[in-house]
């Protein structure tokens, strides 16, 4: 019970922090998705995608679904590379 309340409280805190960082215009999930392969590849290459794709980074900070997918994509790519070497 206590643990659950704690998690909710943290999610509420996280939401309030997101409210404070909300921009008038943000990319939506589809627009983010269009760039996600490019974004993931830059991360893989040790490059900083936030300079080239700042709005994608902003969307990722707001959207836990797209962030989860980026993490999964990086893992999927890693799995391919690992099996090949």
């Amino acid at each position: 019970m206590g643990g659950k309340t704690q998690t909710k409280a943290n999610r509420v805190a996280n939401m309030i922090s997101k409210i404070a960082r909300t921009q008038e215009h943000e990319l939506d999930c589809e627009e983010c998705y269009e760039h996600l392969d490019h974004y993931a590849e830059m991360l893989q290459n040790g490059e900083d995608p936030s300079a080239v794709l700042p709005q994608v980074k902003e969307h990722l900070e707001m959207c836990s679904c797209c962030t989860e997918e980026l993490g999964a994509l990086i893992s999927v790519l890693e799995g391919q590379a690992e099996a090949q070497s």
Partner: peptide
């Protein structure tokens, strides 16, 4: 063509899986 083709294809597979 903004990434390797296999990265793009992986993106689609990831979306399906997730």
């Amino acid at each position: 063509g903004e990434s390797r083709f296999t990265t793009w294809a992986s993106k689609i597979a990831t979306r399906v899986a997730i």
